[in-house]
Amino acid sequence: MDIRYYIFLSLALFVIGIIGVLTRRNAIIVFMCIELMLNAVNLLLVAFSKMHHLAAGAANPTAGSEAQLFVFFIMVVAAAEVSVGLAIIVMLYRNTHSVDINFLNRLKH
């Protein structure tokens, strides 16, 4: 498979995530869109991993595996982030009974 298709696919997913961040007001959905962006990256990394593996050939049988491990670490971090992020959202919800990010404008100028 041509790597460029993967690139385009990932970019498309990534940008959809960004558009989600731009257009949604619900903090949780914004957060989910960010997760979508991360997944786009993951997909791309895996594709690149296979590409480099193919390029390295037999000379280096483990070539490309570092990218897959990177994806693993991204998932780890994402999990940690989610726990913290959701805690923050819940805390805010407890105080304001809203998760609308447009309410977050006490701090400006």
Partner: peptide, 11 residues
């Protein structure tokens, strides 16, 4: 304010 800062920063 602190809540808001936290969520903004996080997002």
């Amino acid at each position: 304010k602190s809540n808001e800062a936290s969520l903004k920063y996080f997002l």
